[in-house]
């Protein structure tokens, strides 16, 4: 129950920050519009924009909960309940954003695999939530966390996609599945992308849980 309540209230909390929500929604659009003339590039950049937006939003949500979480732990909440509730809310917000942009792409672009184009946006959002939370867990101050996200997204954009550096970045799956969706390459691109997504998602989620389990640990004293 805790996870669902945390998810619902986190979503409500975010929805009240109207300007932030507007910026989160519009950021991927600017990425898309600057490369709109090139189908493949525009979709990849849009997906990366979704990933950046959602990871930044998750980072701030995680940081905003720092004062409340220790008290919730004392009241009996589990670390898994708190973390999964927030990840659920941010993943849901990301999925909605991806759905909206998929509708836009469907109207504005022609690609050989439109569902795969939607899939990369969804996966970008789904991997961004645990990635943003892991960065928030490791760098609890907002400025440092935001700069770290900026660095990762910049490297992801600029690195040679065939090189090792790009593969170590969290959004490499976008490029691989994007190549399948837009350039109609073999299905192995899709599987490689899905595998990369699954590995990054598991590593980021497990890392977030581990850091928060350490930070929110409560000393269990014997009863008098």
């Amino acid at each position: 129950m805790t996870a669902l309540v945390v998810a619902g209230l986190s979503a409500r909390e975010v929805s009240r920050r109207r300007t932030a929500v507007l910026l989160v929604i519009s950021l991927p659009l600017w990425f898309y519009l600057v490369r709109r003339d090139q189908t493949g590039q525009s979709i990849r950049m849009l997906s990366l924009g979704i990933g950046w937006s959602i990871s930044t939003l998750t980072l701030f949500v995680m940081n905003a909960s720092r004062g409340v979480d220790p008290r919730l732990r004392l009241n009996g909440a589990s670390v898994a309940g708190l973390v999964s509730g927030r990840l659920l809310a941010m993943s849901g917000a990301g999925a909605l954003l991806a759905l909206g942009y998929w509708a836009l792409i469907s109207l504005d672009q022609r690609v050989p695999h439109p569902f795969a184009a939607g899939l990369i946006m969804l996966l970008a959002a789904l991997v961004a939530a645990p990635f943003g939370s892991l960065v928030g867990a490791l760098l609890p101050r907002e400025l440092e966390g935001a700069l770290a996200l900026l660095s990762v997204c910049a490297v992801q954009m600029l690195a040679d996609p065939a090189g090792l550096v790009a593969k170590l970045m969290p959004f490499w799956s976008i490029r691989e599945i994007g190549t399948y969706a837009v350039d109609d390459t073999g299905i192995d691109y899709l599987w490689r992308g899905l595998t990369h997504f699954a590995v990054v998602w598991i590593v980021c989620t497990a890392g977030t849980l581990a850091v928060f389990a350490h930070r929110l640990r409560i000393a269990h004293y014997p009863e008098p």
Partner: peptide, 28 residues
């Protein structure tokens, strides 16, 4: 045990009722 910190300890964007719901959920 109940703990009331000197400052902080609340979520700025939630109402009092929502805080009651959240803290209540943590305690079951």
């Amino acid at each position: 045990v109940g703990y009331v910190p000197q400052d902080g300890g609340t979520a700025g964007w939630l109402t009092a009722d929502e805080h009651f719901t959240l803290f209540g959920a943590a305690a079951g």
